[in-house]
């Protein structure tokens, strides 16, 4: 256990600059979103903004368009904006493939030549991923509430804490799910291969989900995509996050972690 804690603290120490910088940027982005939403709110231009959206975006948003194109919807944009989601997934894939990096650099030789069981490397990585997800979401939520408390115009309808919580939970589970997939690859392959494969899979899954929303024949395959269980537009409309979605994303993550434990225990540590 001491070895695990030392390993975790070393990994956190090494990742702290990246995590703090990313978290603060996300928090600042949330504040900026409140500022933008407040500006639009004051001029009452949400409807004009909605009219500017191309038809395929409207199709993707579906009945959620009115909710998204509102003060609360714009404020919550950070929890499902594609650029933010991709950046967070890239961060989490990088962290989840840490074991592969440690094997390649030879650092794993120094650790595992000592009385430390192999599984602690995976357990440490899971702890690191969980901590990072919690930190990112906490800072995003803090940014949202700080922005609302200081910059929201009077009369603007704030998104409810439940809605923010559901969006954060759904985003966190999506990150956890892809970290499980990346970790399974990272336990058996080189980091570049694991990262690229997970990234390509994520892109394919995202396209599959979007295609399913735009083209009905693709809908019957869309359930295969983890993004199908990431439903921010429904949440912005005030719906609750279904337990099924939580379970599916959780199950993918756990399967990935289990596979990572197995593969890492079996592999040769060679670089």
């Amino acid at each position: 256990m001491t070895g695990f804690l030392l390993l975790l603290s070393l990994s956190l120490k090494r990742a702290r600059t990246l995590l703090i910088a990313t978290g603060l940027l996300l928090a600042a982005f949330q504040v900026l979103l409140v500022l933008i939403a407040g500006s639009i709110q004051r001029t009452g231009e949400f409807e004009q903004l909605a009219a500017l959206l191309p038809p395929f975006v409207r199709a993707i948003l579906g009945p959620a368009m009115a909710s998204v194109m509102s003060f609360g919807g714009i404020v919550c944009l950070g929890y499902f904006d594609l650029a933010i989601v991709i950046a967070l997934l890239a961060l989490i894939i990088a962290l989840a493939t840490l074991p592969a990096s440690e094997v390649e650099t030879g650092f794993a030789d120094l650790i595992l030549a000592r009385p430390l069981r192999r599984h602690w490397i995976i357990t440490r990585t899971i702890a690191l991923v969980l901590f990072s997800i919690l930190m990112m979401l906490t800072l995003m939520i803090a940014g949202t509430w700080a922005g609302l408390a200081t910059l929201a115009p009077e009369g603007a309808q704030w998104p409810s804490p439940g809605m923010i919580g559901s969006l954060a939970l759904n985003l966190g589970l999506l990150m956890l799910c892809w970290s499980g997939i990346a970790m399974a690859f990272g336990a058996a392959c080189r980091r570049s291969v694991a990262g690229a494969t997970t990234g390509l899979l994520a892109l394919t899954a995202l396209l599959l989900d979007l295609t399913g929303r735009l083209w009905p024949p693709a809908e019957r395959f869309a359930w295969l995509s983890p993004f199908r269980y990431f439903i921010p537009f429904d949440l912005v409309m005030g719906r609750a996050l279904p337990v099924e979605n939580i379970l599916v994303l959780w199950a993918i993550a756990m399967s990935g972690f289990t596979l990572a434990y197995f593969l890492f225990s079996q592999r040769d540590i060679s670089h």
Binding site: L10, T105, F107, I111, P115
Partner: peptide, 28 residues
């Protein structure tokens, strides 16, 4: 066992003392 690998995989952003303390700590 005390082990010296042929190629030392050390993180460049750590100091020498940090490496020694860390590796000493997990050695039991």
């Amino acid at each position: 066992v005390g082990y010296l690998p042929g190629e030392l995989g050390l993180y460049p952003d750590l100091t020498g003392l940090e490496v020694l303390d860390f590796l000493g700590g997990i050695s039991r």
